[in-house]
Structures are given as structure tokens and as C-alpha cells.
Design a protein around this nucleic acid. Structure first.
Lengths: 339, 339
DNA sequence: CTGAAAGCGCTTACAG
DNA sequence: CTGAAAGCGCTTACAG
């Protein structure tokens, strides 16, 4: 492990000068700088992050990404987008995959550990509690949320209510009036904004279309494939069957499509199905959906943090709430309502 | 940030004693220990990982996981399995998602950075080069591979040749003789063992069944859904159409299923399709497949590293190559060959 | 059982 | 432009 001392000895200057030369600080003669840089390359020098961190008050060039379930498309795609940008800029990513476990979440977010191991935190998919916001704020850890929002932190997300509105309006425009919802109705205390907002948007836009939302048309699909399939089964057994379903995620929509297939219900002639996400396989299933740019959201959130950490000259430190645009992609699973 | 000095002052002992008490080291009176521990809790003390790392020769309680594509099922599932165990044991996970980029891979694996930031490395899905093996070995970084193998490191994987054999034998037993392969034929220099071994196993087991492998029946599906779909299209246009396809991944199999559907080819009556993986959606597609336990492989690899890092008493340091068992799951996409 | 002191590899005022 | 020295928060022989 070659250290700064080796470079100092090799080049005949002090370690202070080596340090300055290495980091491109001013007040080093071009000649000295060059000799140091050259030695660094020759001896294969890399700074010890521990020493740097200790000496310079804790900067680690590491960013923590806290997700709920890495194995789910939205989360892994966010991680993919964020990680690539961060690595490009010389930051490493600490991944915390806390699942539905509230205890794990507390440990990760409320522990001093996090504040000492990462320069910043990206919270993906859930709303941090006031306590968590306060804690990280007090420890000066810049944070950003993705797919959720608190006033104190910048956020990157889509307008979930609007997404629901776009989906429902598409169905209404096709003549549907009896429109079911498959989403998530209970939460296990995780306080997920997305399912709540999409449900709300669904109800509101039904009302706007002059239709009274009925609770009997709202199903819990748990945001999973199998949950969607099960919800689809129940929905198809309704005495007064709806003619369309708005699914709050594409994966649940796949499940609903499957249950239609199994029940011999023709899509879209007898049942229109629309999802949300623009999931990998939406094209594959020929699913009409409202697409959101997930990888870009990951990158945008990363960019936010990078700006907070290494502010460029004129940069002002506003708390920005970015809502990225979504896009209705009409495919084969939605069609006109038959009388 | 309360430090070890605060605790020393608070309890009236030296920092050396505080350090020993905190870490459960012997030669501390029970009374002292208790007072220190108590103060630590009261003052909300957490050690600075930087200081610990620097002082104790670099241990970071961090493990690097290097994957090719986090967004793909196999990789995210491995990460999920490994991370949960590691976090339980107090280790953090640094995630490197290098994609197909050979340059990124070199930077990540061959840089001193990695050796200084992580106590160990888990390489997922590709074979490290001799140079990489040498480098990490020289820097004393314990490593393990997943889904690949080098002699110098322990590994956790399935027997990919055998997986292919099991799949092909299942088809042969159903009377199929003309069996196509959809996998990956070229590699972009990444040197991925999995596609190569599965292809090899496919050819060998055909030969064992007295069938000569034909290159015209081997298709490149790039291990993606769309690649599989495209391969399926081409395969169905063959003048002498095969009666079965062995797909080296479930996702490619979904693609093939889709192309059968589009071409009006009945599965399994006119075409049997079998995959590999036990992917999330295999049941959904009613796909016959050879399942591998991916989450468990992630956990097993993590366990290996933990053992290397904190060897229990009698533990011997053998380089273990673990092959986890796979399981043929017969569903609806394979059936008897019709004459 | 406990403490004084050196050291881990850097950064950062402070002099010069 | 450069260097000597202190300090970041711990751990670790070495004495006692």
C-alpha cells in the first residue's frame, strides 16, 4: 500500500505538498505537481478513503440508497440509473434493501452509522417520517426522496394522481363508465404515497366524469403479479362486471390479463385493462399503460445530491420538487366499451 | 458527534479502556464496562468507521458486490439474498453495477480503491480474469464468485452443464429428437461461463441421446425477452421445424412462447418449450423449467465471506466450490412429441 | 484491570 | 510555493 509518505520520499517534498499537488489545489509549482503526479502513477498510489474521511471531516464519497425491494422493477431500475451516474462521478453506492421491515428501516435511517458512512442519502419509494427527516437534517446529511415527497427534502417523482387521471380519462373517452381499480388498499404502516395517490386520482377522475366511485370496485392487488391475478379473478366474478380496469402497476395488470385469459374473457372486447409504469414487459403483453421514466428519475435524484455535495459556482440551494412527465402509451389491451 | 473521548470524560477512565470496554475485550472490570456501555447508550455513541478503519488496519465492515446488470432478475435476487444476511451481521454492501462495460469492470476490480473500501468482494455472473484474481489476492481481499468459477476462489453456483442435460433429457424422454437451443452464442469478450456451459451441456446430451447437434438449430437470444422472441420467430420459420426448444433462461423462453402464440403454433402440442431459472414469472407463464435457488446462492456466498472474515474457532480455510442443486419443474409448456 | 503514548494516512491552518 | 506540526477518532502494544 503506497502512501503519501512514499510519494513524499520519492519526490523529495513534504507530505503536505504531495497532498496539495494530488488534489489539484493551487499554490503548487507546475513542476512539483508534475513530479508528484508522475510518482503517484508509477507507484500505483490511491488514497485511503479512511484517512481522507477522518482528516477532512467525514466525507466518504459514498452515497446510501435505501430501497424497499431491490428485486422489483421500479427499484432496481432506479438503482441502475443512480449508480451509473454516481460511479461516473467517483461516488460509491451503499445499498440498503430494507423490505417491508419497519425495524430495519429505523436501524438504517436513524442510526449514526449511516450519517458517518455516507455523504448523502437517497430514499426510494417511501415517505420518511418526521423523526427521520429531523435526524438526518440535524446530522447534515443531504437527502432526496424518489417516488415520495417531504417538504424539507428535494424530491423526484411523477404526479401519481395525475397518472391515475390520465389512465381513467383514457378509459372514459373509450366509453367506459364502470371502471374497477386494482392497487393497494392497506399499507402495513409503511406509509407509501404512491398507492394512496393513485387511488385518490382514480376516484377523483371518476367523479369528474360524473361516475360515483364504488368501493366494491376497488381491489387490493398488493402491487404484485399474483395479487393482480387474484384481484382479476374476484373482479370477473362480480354480478355487475366492470368493462374496464385501471391497475396501479403494470405487473398487477399482467395478473389481471392472465385472469381474463383463464376466464375466457376477451381483452379488450369484454374488458379493457390499463396499467402504470412502462415496465419492461409492457410491450410484450401489448399492455396500454402510462409510462414513467424510471431510470432517468434515478439519475435526476443522483444529480441533485451531487449538486448539493459539490455545488458549482452560482448554484442556489433551493429545495426542488421535480415532477417528471409521464406518457400514455396506447396498445392493444384497451378498446371501446360495448353497450 | 460524541466520540470515545466524551465517553472517557463522562466515565472517568482512559480512552483505551473505553475502546476495550466497548468492544467486549477482556481485561476490563465488569463495573467499568457497564459504566462505559451505559454512557455510550446515553450519549448516543457510534464509532466512526473511518477512525476504526484507519486505526485497525483497514477493516471497513463493508462488502463489495459486483454485478453485471442489477435490473435483471438473477442479479437483483442475488443481491437481495446476500444483502439481507450481510446487513444482519452488521456489514454494509457497496454495489457496483458494471453492465457490459469491460472498462468499468477493470476500474472497479483492479483499482486499489476497492481493496481499501471493502473487506471482501463478491463477483456475480462473470469469470474474473487471472489479472483480477492475482490483484485481489495480492491485496488480501477475500473474494467469492457466484454463477462463475475460478480455482483460486470459493464459488457458489449451479452445474450449468447438468442443468442443460436435465432439460434436454426431459425433452428426449417426451420423444423429442429435433431440439433447438436458444441462448447466447457470442459474448463481447465478457467471458460468461453460464451461456457457454449450457450450450455445451445441450450438445453433449443430444449426442448422448444419439442425436447430432446442428448449428442451424442454435439461436442467439441474448438472454433477454426480446432476444428470445426474435430467436423464436426465426426458429419457427425453419423448413424442418424442431418440435422442442431448450431456452437457456426463462426470460428467453417467455419470448419464444410469445412468438409461438403470434405464429399460431400451439404449445406444447406443436412445440415444447423449456427454460432455466425458476424466474418469478415462470409459474405465471406455466413454463416448464429447471429451477435454481438464486436467493439462497446469494446468502451462501455471503456466508462464505463472513466465515473468511470472522473465522469461528475450528474453521479451516478450504477453497470450497459449492454446487447447489437444481430441480426440474414440469408445467404446461412441454409435452410429448407428435410423430 | 488500567493508562500514557504512538500510530493508522491523510488534511489543514500557520509560518515562512 | 513549501514545510513542520497538529489533529481527525480510533486501536494497540507496552508499562504498570
Amino acid at each position: 500500500m503506497t502512501s503519501i509518505h512514499d510519494l513524499a520520499r520519492e519526490t523529495g517534498v513534504s507530505t503536505a505538498t504531495v497532498s496539495r499537488a494530488l488534489r489539484g489545489l493551487p499554490r503548487v509549482s507546475p513542476d512539483t505537481r508534475e513530479r508528484v503526479l508522475d510518482a503517484a502513477v508509477r507507484l500505483g498510489y490511491t488514497p485511503s478513503p479512511h484517512a481522507v474521511g477522518l482528516a477532512s471531516g467525514g466525507r466518504t464519497r459514498t452515497i446510501a440508497i435505501v430501497v424497499l425491494w431491490v428485486t422489483r422493477w421500479y427499484f432496481s431500475t432506479v438503482v441502475h440509473g443512480a449508480e451509473s451516474l454516481l460511479r461516473e462521478r467517483g461516488y460509491d453506492v451503499l445499498l440498503y434493501n430494507i423490505g417491508g421491515d419497519a425495524e430495519a428501516r429505523r436501524r438504517v435511517l436513524l442510526t449514526q452509522l449511516l450519517t458517518k458512512r455516507a455523504d448523502a442519502v437517497m430514499v426510494v419509494g417511501f415517505t420518511p417520517t418526521p423523526e427521520e427527516v429531523l435526524w438526518l437534517g440535524r446530522h447534515d446529511v443531504p437527502a432526496v426522496t424518489l417516488g415520495a415527497r417531504v417538504d424539507e427534502w428535494p424530491s423526484v417523482r411523477i404526479d401519481d394522481e395525475n397518472v391515475a387521471r390520465v389512465a381513467v380519462e383514457h378509459l372514459v373517452a373509450l366509453g367506459h363508465r364502470r371502471i374497477a381499480y386494482v392497487g393497494q388498499l392497506s399499507d402495513d404502516g409503511l406509509d407509501l404515497a404512491t398507492p394512496r395517490d393513485r387511488l385518490h386520482g382514480y376516484r377523483e377522475s371518476l367523479r369528474a366524469a360524473g361516475v360515483d366511485p364504488e368501493e366494491s370496485l376497488e381491489f387490493d392487488g398488493g402491487f404484485t403479479l399474483d395479487g393482480g391475478r387474484e384481484a382479476g379473478r374476484r373482479l370477473l366474478q362480480l354480478r355487475e362486471r366492470p368493462t374496464a380496469v385501471f391497475c396501479a402497476s403494470d405487473e398487477m395488470a399482467y395478473g389481471v390479463l392472465r385472469s381474463c385469459l383463464e376466464a375466457g374473457v376477451d381483452v379488450p372486447r369484454e374488458m379493457s385493462v390499463i396499467g402504470v409504469d412502462g415496465h419492461d414487459m409492457a410491450g410484450f403483453f401489448d399492455l396500454t399503460t402510462v409510462e414513467q421514466p424510471v431510470e432517468q428519475q434515478g439519475r435526476a435524484a443522483a444529480r441533485h445530491l451531487l449538486q448539493r455535495l459539490d455545488p458549482d459556482d452560482g448554484e442556489v440551494g433551493l429545495v426542488e420538487h421535480v415532477e417528471v412527465p409521464t406518457r400514455l402509451v396506447v396498445r392493444g389491451t384497451t378498446g371501446p366499451a360495448c353497450a
